[in-house]
Design a protein around this nucleic acid. Sequence first.
DNA 1: TATTTACGCAACCTAAAGGTTACATTATAT
DNA 2: ATATAATGTAACCTTTAGGTTGCGTAAATA
Lengths: 112, 112
Amino acid sequence: MRRDVFQAIADPTRREIINMLAHHPMNVNAVAENFAVSRTAIYKHIKMLIECGLVVVTQFGRERYLEARLESLDEVSAWVEQYRKIWTDRFFNFENYLDELETKKRKTGKRK
Amino acid sequence: MRRDVFQAIADPTRREIINMLAHHPMNVNAVAENFAVSRTAIYKHIKMLIECGLVVVTQFGRERYLEARLESLDEVSAWVEQYRKIWTDRFFNFENYLDELETKKRKTGKRK
DNA sequence: TATTTACGCAACCTAAAGGTTACATTATAT
DNA sequence: ATATAATGTAACCTTTAGGTTGCGTAAATA
């Protein structure tokens, strides 16, 4: 299992775990109960989220409370947002595209 | 290979391809030349991006121009942004957390 | 004290991801 | 007409992801 944020949120189960923990802390079993797969399977997802820093743990007797720590999602947001202007500004985009095709035509000296 | 946007951007090579195409359209070989792996490997990444709608193709003689179409990245952005308030408002978060622990204590009737 | 309960983890399995080489096809250039 | 360039794709391989069962350990409870 890798440990980067993009990979962490790639799996729908992990996104759901994040969603659950975002609203209130829960212990491992409580999280696992909400899924059809085994506790161990969920535990592995949780472990990965912990390794990514998206979830932190507080021991509490024999229980371990999981809390979402979502700041690092900002890396994802930032990555996406850098492109928003590009996909928003249709004209800019189209302009570039035509330029490229034009260059190509000139290079090959052909039409069509 | 899956076909959802979160999965598509999970791979660093695909993110780099997206970045290249975001700035100007390129053909398949041109993209592949920028990576150490084989053209086929890159082609598979591109194919997945096409299947996700993140890249569109324009045939041009024997060449195929690849253009980034990044609107669907907004799904990712939206998913992240729904949590921004939670990770920004530390107090709100902490409050919830304490509530949870308090509930737990009451339930077990124990301290520590 | 004996028994649950909550959890971590090893060992194992299957499918998918990511990569390779090799070949087929079509358009362009010679 | 032939050779080359750009691309799609099949067949195959290795690693990783995601899942399982089973067991060990520490804390809470009967």
